[in-house]
């Protein structure tokens, strides 16, 4: 192989002279996590709201929720990012557009909102599925004891629905971390972008990308372990492993 391996490259200074390459990767990781966590907050809040809408008795609310989900699910994430970053400033009134264009860290804010809304549609799917997997009797029992519909959602349906969807929800969280890499196209220097720029300056292609790969793997392991811990902590005694008595209708 005509490739020159140099694992020491991580400790060399990058061309701008202030940081070593592994520090650049670290900053990239920081941006990745910041973007992912901020976007996840938006995704959880909006996604839960839309997911609940799609299970209410009102056909109009259900249709609204469905339209929301279809919109964000059928356009590629990259295209959505371009729409937020390039198209939005042009179609809003000139004053707002100019302000948007000169915003520092614009790529971060755009990435967070875009990623947050994109993922919220997938979270909405999970939340809807979780609520609908509960026996219809649970909703009736909540109402029968005098709780209003919002109270029934809050105290009876959602606590169980969220426990049920913890596994797919943690998959979505991992997805959001991975999808943050798409923001490199609008200038966010997250982990993959940092690795790419390390590769461009140092020509040590495989070291750079191996570094990034290892960091992603570590993040994965930490998140998966964290989720398993969370699942154990919120598990309902006697429920997991033992299905509730008799199939419902």
């Amino acid at each position: 192989m005509s490739y020159n391996w140099n694992w020491g490259i991580f400790f060399q200074l990058s061309p701008d002279g202030t940081y070593t390459y592994w520090q650049l990767l670290l900053f990239g990781t920081g941006w990745t996590l910041a973007t992912a966590l901020s976007a996840w907050t938006i995704a959880l809040i909006m996604g839960s709201f839309i997911g609940v809408l799609r299970t209410t008795p009102s056909p109009w609310l259900v249709r609204l929720g469905n339209a929301y989900v279809e919109l964000f699910r059928n356009i590629p994430l990259l295209v959505q990012m371009f729409l937020w970053y390039f198209v939005l400033p042009e179609v809003v009134p000139a004053a707002i557009g100019d302000w948007l264009k000169q915003l520092s860290n614009a790529s971060f804010y755009n990435a967070v909102i875009c990623l947050g809304l994109y993922t919220s549609a997938r979270v909405a799917e999970q939340v809807k599925a979780g609520i609908l997997s509960l026996r219809s009797g649970q909703r009736m029992a909540g109402l029968a004891v005098g709780l209003t519909l919002p109270q029934t959602y809050r105290f009876v349906l959602l606590p169980m629905a969220f426990r049920i969807i913890l596994p797919p929800l943690s998959s979505e969280f991992l997805n959001i971390i991975k999808n943050s890499s798409v923001a490199l196209t609008i200038g966010l220097i997250e982990l993959t972008a940092a690795a790419r720029s390390m590769q461009e300056f140092s020509f040590q292609v495989f070291e750079a990308f191996t570094g990034a790969t290892i960091i992603y793997i570590v993040i994965n392991v930490v998140v998966v372990s964290g989720m398993q811990l969370l699942e154990r902590r919120v598990a309902v005694p006697g429920f997991i492993g033992r299905s509730p008595p008799a199939a419902g209708h």
Binding site: R135, G137, Q138, M140, A141, G142, A144, F155, V156, P159, M160, R163, V236, G238, F239, P244, P245, A246, G248
Partner: peptide, 10 residues
């Protein structure tokens, strides 16, 4: 009182 009890499992 329901056929499937419908206690709140959590």
């Amino acid at each position: 009182v329901f056929q499937h009890f419908e206690l709140f499992p959590h």
